[in-house]
Amino acid sequence: MENLQQLFIEAGTLMLAGMVFVFTFLGLLIVFIKVVLVKLATKFPDAIVESRASSKKNNKKQDGNAVSPAVVAAISCAVTQYRQQHSAQK
């Protein structure tokens, strides 16, 4: 029984220490995100992603097969519509 009582005290200490530590650790992470990462984000905006996205676009332009049929259909539809309106005005 005494042993069990000791185990309960040990479990209580572990719970208290554990929860305090988890909150402190993740709380420090919040500080890290708000102080370091947010500053980094303003200093280094998404240049990498933009350049990659633009290079992907360039690749797509070079590779004719990469343009989806839906896009081709939409563009040709718009061109036809524009031509019809243009000829009607004339």
């Binding site: 650790f25 992470l29 995100i33 990462l37 947010v38 998404d46």
Partner: peptide
Amino acid sequence: HVTKVEKIIFPLGVLMM
């Protein structure tokens, strides 16, 4: 929007902590 730099530094920060 979260930038690429933030996403790269985050795991390194977690590891350091």
